[in-house]
Amino acid sequence: MESKKRTASEADIASVPVHKRQAVTIREPSIFGIKPVDDITKYIADFIAEHVHLENVEIEAKLGIFVDKRSNQRMNIGAKTETVLEPESTRQYRFVADMPLEQHRHFNKMLNETVNRTQAREYKGERVKYKHTIETDRFYEMGRNKCRVTTEQSTGKIVENGIIEKIRVADLNIHSPNQALDYRISINIEKPRSKPTTNPIFERNKDRISYQHGGIAFDLTQVKGSADRDPDVRHELELEFADAKALGLEKLKNDRKEPSHYTSMVETFVNNIRLLSRSALKLYK
């Protein structure tokens, strides 16, 4: 049986008595004693800060790819790392959040495994919460926007906060050329409304698995429109701040120069997006 040969450095280390070996020095993150937030996360935090104070604000991110409208292929602008796109880029590129069923199943399996892992008795961290809902959205004309009424398919009852007018406020587009997926961060207003008395103009059915961890909601959704208007099935993955008001309060503390978790909350949001993108199946060139 062959024995594994040790390198000279390994042999030298092994020959030094344990009590004489020097411990690895734990270094400070910088000469100033702080770790700077990376540039893109700071840009995202500043973007969100412009809108987080809005009433009934929704802050979400969708994973997908930016597609070149001319070639119908994933965008290629020569970027080597993650980059924020100019708003004008939407003239040349479109964001596609509809992912292949294979990708959807991959995320479903991965997130379910995370739920199981965090439910173990010996697990010490925050447990991942899990919920499966099957709902129907019906849309009604309301001026320039639309009113959405969401009901449970099993009972027909309107869900909590299920009647809203969704108003688009702003988007921030981020291309990640080294990863399988790009992402878009969107700011919307979800204004409560009373139930419309007119007939709906269209509807969609949502089969959604929701996970929650660290103040972030992860929604993996299969969406199917009405058979006559939109028969295709779409698969989407989005992340959302579960409590945008809490984020807004931390931003106010930050503005007053008080101890605040605002930046770290945004950092957690971005970290989750990045990790999901990096773990995605590479189905696009």
Rank of each mutant, 00 (worst) to 15 (best):
L252W: 04
G143Q: 12
Y183A: 06
K191P: 01
L249P: 00
D182F: 03
M110I: 08
H53A: 06
G215K: 09
Q73E: 13
P17K: 10
A14T: 05
D98G: 07
Y262A: 03
P29A: 03
Q22E: 15
R91N: 14
N76M: 04
S176I: 00
D219R: 07
I167P: 00
I40E: 10
Q222H: 06
S277D: 09
G125Y: 12
D98W: 00
S154L: 11
P17Q: 12
N205M: 12
E203S: 15
D137K: 01
N272S: 09
E86I: 07
H53E: 05
T114K: 14
L283Y: 07
S194Q: 15
T41V: 04
K195T: 08
E240C: 02
F66I: 03
E113D: 15
L281F: 12
G125V: 11
K251P: 00
I134M: 14
N56S: 13
S226V: 02
P29W: 10
K42D: 12
N112S: 07
F241V: 00
Y130W: 12
S277V: 04
Y123V: 01
R234Y: 09
I163T: 15
A97G: 10
I209C: 03
A49S: 15
T155H: 09
Q212L: 01
I163K: 06
V270D: 00
R184H: 01
D232W: 08
P87T: 09
G225V: 03
R208P: 01
N112R: 06
M110E: 10
S264I: 06
E113H: 07
K195L: 13
K109M: 11
A170N: 05
A246E: 09
I164A: 00
P200I: 01
E82H: 05
V233S: 04
A246V: 02
I174R: 04
V96P: 00
T150V: 13
V18D: 13
K285D: 12
Q92Y: 14
V96I: 07
K129V: 05
T150M: 06
F47Y: 11
N112Y: 01
D137V: 04
S154M: 08
T118M: 07
G225Q: 03
E60F: 03
E236D: 06
F32C: 02
H132Q: 11
I158S: 01
T7N: 10
N271M: 08
M1I: 01
G214D: 08
Q119W: 15
Q179L: 11
D12Y: 13
L252R: 14
H19P: 03
A217V: 11
V270Q: 02
I273V: 10
H132F: 13
G143N: 05
D12H: 05
P100Y: 07
K285Q: 15
R74W: 03
E203I: 04
A244N: 01
I187R: 08
P231C: 10
D219T: 08
F139Q: 04
V18T: 10
M99H: 02
